[in-house]
Computed example of a mutant assay.
Amino acid sequence: MTVKREAWLTYLALVPVVAGVIIASGGEPSFHLFGFIMCVGATAARALKSVLQGILLSSEGEKLNSMNLLLYMAPIAVVLLLPATIIMEDNVVGITIALAREDVKIIWYLLFNSSLAYFVNLTNFLVTKHTSALTLQVLGNAKGAVAVVISILIFKNPVSVTGMLGYAITVIGVILYSEAKKRSK
């Protein structure tokens, strides 16, 4: 979309990232084809969003910074996600109110979670502005591998040897991508 070309070494470094994700997905103990297709679609949508963010943040005509972009995107996200939450989550408002009556800490948890989401989005915009949408996507794959490791350590989620191999290849690919970007500068 931006007609920006990367060095051939950068594209070569993306091969293990993609291959690692594919291997890890295939080695998932609870793999389901529909879920995999939805993940691929979500990844493509996230990539499109990152590219559009990069265009808006780097465009000379728009003069948007990360805070302004977040200010414009947050209300749209609320308008889209709030009805979906109310429809898909049975009695979510009633349950939240009941939990808040039982323990006021739930309000603090929700505020803390909202603050983290704000900072994650702001950080994503800053990474996109100062690097590229491609770098943000590669970091997203690294974040996924780290999340799996944490879920194994904390929640004892099962993972196959194939899945572990796939995540290791993904991390190696992220490191190779980082090195390729350094060399291309």
Rank of each mutant, 00 (worst) to 15 (best):
G173H: 02
K4A: 13
F36N: 03
L9N: 09
L12E: 03
I154V: 14
N113D: 14
S184H: 04
T128C: 08
T85L: 06
L64Y: 15
V127L: 04
S132L: 04
V3I: 10
I169L: 12
P158S: 04
V159T: 02
L99D: 09
N121P: 00
G27K: 00
L69K: 08
K4T: 09
L52H: 06
F36W: 02
G26Q: 13
T131V: 07
M88H: 08
I154R: 01
L165P: 12
S184T: 15
G61P: 12
G173E: 01
H130K: 09
L48P: 00
A180R: 05
A13P: 02
I55P: 02
A45G: 10
I152A: 13
V149A: 12
A19F: 10
V40A: 12
I107E: 03
K4S: 11
L165Q: 09
S59P: 09
L48H: 08
V120A: 06
G26P: 00
I172Q: 06
T2D: 06
F112R: 14
L48A: 14
V104H: 13
S50Q: 06
E89K: 12
I106M: 13
K181W: 04
M1S: 02
I152N: 02
A117E: 13
S66R: 13
Y167Q: 10
I22R: 03
E6R: 11
P16G: 01
M38P: 00
G41S: 09
L71H: 14
T43P: 05
V104K: 15
F31W: 04
S30I: 06
Y167H: 06
I172R: 10
A47W: 11
A77N: 07
E6A: 14
I23W: 00
F155V: 09
A45Q: 02
D90T: 14
L116G: 12
N68T: 11
L122N: 11
N68E: 15
I152W: 05
K182T: 08
R46V: 07
A180C: 06
L176E: 12
L99E: 07
G35K: 07
P158C: 01
V148Q: 01
L48M: 13
I106P: 04
P29V: 04
R5E: 11
K129Q: 05
A47L: 11
L57W: 01
S30Q: 11
K105V: 14
L33A: 15
N141T: 11
I22L: 12
L48W: 14
G35E: 00
E102R: 10
I95V: 04
S151C: 03
V93R: 05
A42V: 01
L122V: 08
G163E: 05
L52W: 09
Q53I: 03
F119A: 02
D90N: 14
G20E: 02
G61I: 12
K143H: 08
S58F: 04
S184F: 07
K182Q: 12
L14W: 04
L64H: 13
T96K: 03
E6K: 06
